[in-house]
Design a protein around this nucleic acid. Sequence first.
DNA 1: ATGGTCGGTATCCGA
Length: 264
Amino acid sequence: MRIVTWNINSLRLRLKLLERLGEELRPDIVCLQETKVPDELFPDEAVRALGYAHIQHRGMKSYNGVAILSRVPLTPLDDTPDWCARSDCRHIAASFALGGASVELHNFYVPAGGDVPDPEANPKFAHKLAFVDEATSWFTGRPSRRTILVGDLNIAPLEQDVWSHRQLLDVVSHTPPETTRLQAWLACGFVDAMRHFVPPEEKLYTWWSYRNRDWKASNRGRRLDHVWVTSDLTASLQNMTVLRDARDWPTTSDHVPVAMDFSA
DNA sequence: ATGGTCGGTATCCGA
């Protein structure tokens, strides 16, 4: 069972790249963020034609939007909160069968938080911190069993999750208020599955800004995309792939797909 | 220290 998470930065613009992702990684389930498509305009036909017969999406005009595309049946999880009371399409969840038992899958798009890392001066940063706090409270009150959480969490928690820890300490995505909160959320009962495969001393990125002339040469990356599992699933973890090559696909997203393989 | 580039129903705003 292979699950992929990818901030696609517009699904309709990159349907061909979703097809390429399917050819190169053969995922069973794809979790997308920043689909930027309202539900009534979701390209169901095109997605189904790529082999994903089971689709859940939550989208709005212009911004945000998440989707789960699957080759295996999904059961929607409807008891999820309206985070920060904004109805802004940043979370979608479902369960599916893995090795004969059900697994809960959560797909998140955490607010980016704007430019100024001060919740007093910047409401977008305040929203980001509140969102992570709410998510932490919610998961704390849930049984931490057979759960996978993926998505663009917009926070790079570890020193080696950014190209320069020192230079990014004041940059939104790597500030202490954010990294501390992300660690608290993780500590609800999750294991950082990407770091299960790559030790924390090694650099690991999933995002490179569009603003660098040559992303590969400068390599100023950050690990903003994550896969977490509850500890009862760590024995099922088989392999992890960051599809770095996807950053060179024509007119691609600034995020690359991350694949996680599970044994049944 | 600065500015750099994307996407959306768009001539700014969010990332």
